[in-house]
């Protein structure tokens, strides 16, 4: 009971306060104009937000994965999923993203880890072909069974990034500027925790994964 309470608090803190300081703040609530009612207390607002976070699986994003097969975004429905976006030829932040994901995994008990899925979606459909993605998977030592690398079309990548709150720009030379974000989805695809940047405190994610849901 206490652990779940702690987990909930950690959850709410991370969702509510959005401490990592970037433009892609986790929670921004719209405020009505003029006759604004005072905003609810932070914990309440966060709880409300957490409760009604819609599932991102409402997006019918088509993904082409590292095995070459094409499927929908909700391929891992029923499992908690760590989802992020990247591109294969990225030399700085993206390897770090991988490291972060592995770091999270290492802190999880075996059983939880077995249930977890990791989905990394590339916005570079042209270059990140299934072959390239498969190679990346091998080179970076990703668990073949649970990790999936995939790419999406420009339009669908934009939509997915919109839902995850990831900003990116494709340069003419094929590189991308992008924000580094990892989102934990619950088995129904609802975002639970959002990590912005790398080197952030992982306690919230770990807690969300290891505490039984209330």
């Amino acid at each position: 009971m206490k652990r779940s309470l702690l987990g909930c608090l950690a959850l709410l803190t991370l969702i509510g306060c959005g401490a990592p300081s970037t433009s892609d703040q986790g929670r921004k609530s719209p405020v009505p104009a003029e006759s604004a009612v005072p905003a609810p207390a932070p914990a309440v607002a966060a709880a409300r937000n957490a409760a009604v976070q819609p599932s991102i699986y409402e997006l019918s994003t088509r993904l082409r994965d590292d095995t070459g097969s094409v499927g929908s975004l909700d391929r891992f429905r029923g499992h908690p999923v760590l989802i992020t976006m990247f591109y294969g030829s990225c030399a700085t932040a993206c390897p770090l993203l991988t490291t972060e994901l592995k770091r999270i995994e290492r802190q999880l008990p075996q059983k939880v880890r077995d249930d977890l899925r990791v989905l990394m979606v590339s916005f570079d459909e042209d270059r990140d072909t299934p072959e390239v993605l498969a190679r990346l998977k091998r080179e970076r030592g990703m668990d073949g069974a649970r990790w999936t690398l995939a790419s999406a079309s420009d339009d669908e990548a934009r939509a997915l990034s919109g839902v995850l709150g990831i900003k990116y720009r494709k340069l003419d030379n094929g590189e991308f500027f992008h924000s580094s974000v990892i989102v934990l989805l619950d088995p129904q695809g609802r975002p639970l925790v959002r990590l912005s940047g790398v080197g952030e405190d992982l306690d919230g994610v770990v807690a969300a994964l290891t505490t039984p849901s209330s």
Partner: peptide, 26 residues
């Protein structure tokens, strides 16, 4: 591509220390 406007919300930073949050100097 509104999301390609990657200017740091504090644009006075001029790209310093951005690399870990934004791949590249936005």
């Amino acid at each position: 591509d509104y999301g390609a406007s990657l200017v740091a919300s504090d644009s006075r930073e001029k790209g310093e220390g951005q690399n870990l949050r934004f791949c590249g100097a936005s």
